[in-house]
């Protein structure tokens, strides 16, 4: 798969844009790790509590399965818009997502396997 590094940076861009744009986030940790033919990306947004509706929407949008039929064509749009978030693009580029909102922190973990 080509443009792997760029795709990872665009995924980070999209998630960061969503949380920074929609919430008053003061501090964020981003951890990107390349292990076992996969990229693991972890975000921790501190001092943030989401309501049930937003959590449901986030899980719905990020929980879609990876879609290589669309990824190769549309990946360049990821992270490009400021207002209309495109979390579905992140979902079509990732194999697994974990989402936690506890202790006043939001933790998003994404896994992208390499071919």
């Amino acid at each position: 798969m080509k443009h792997e590094v760029k795709k990872i940076t665009k995924i980070v861009d999209e998630i960061m844009t969503y949380f920074l744009y929609n919430h008053e986030v003061q501090m964020t940790d981003v951890h990107v790790e390349h292990i076992n033919k996969a990229f693991e990306i972890t975000f921790i947004f501190h001092d943030l509590q989401l309501d049930e509706l937003e959590i449901r929407d986030l899980k719905k949008n990020l929980g879609r399965k990876r879609n290589p039929e669309l990824e190769d064509y549309y990946w360049q749009l990821t992270g490009e818009a400021e207002e209309s978030n495109e979390l579905s693009l992140v979902a079509m580029m990732t194999d697994a997502v974990e989402f936690l909102n506890e202790d006043n922190k939001v933790r998003v973990m994404l896994l992208r396997k390499l071919d």
């Binding site: 064509y73 990946w75 360049q76 749009l77 490009e80 495109e86």
Partner: peptide, 10 residues
């Protein structure tokens, strides 16, 4: 086609 998406941002 993939590249041109950036011209109009979708």
């Amino acid at each position: 086609a993939s590249h041109m998406l950036r011209f109009h941002d979708g």
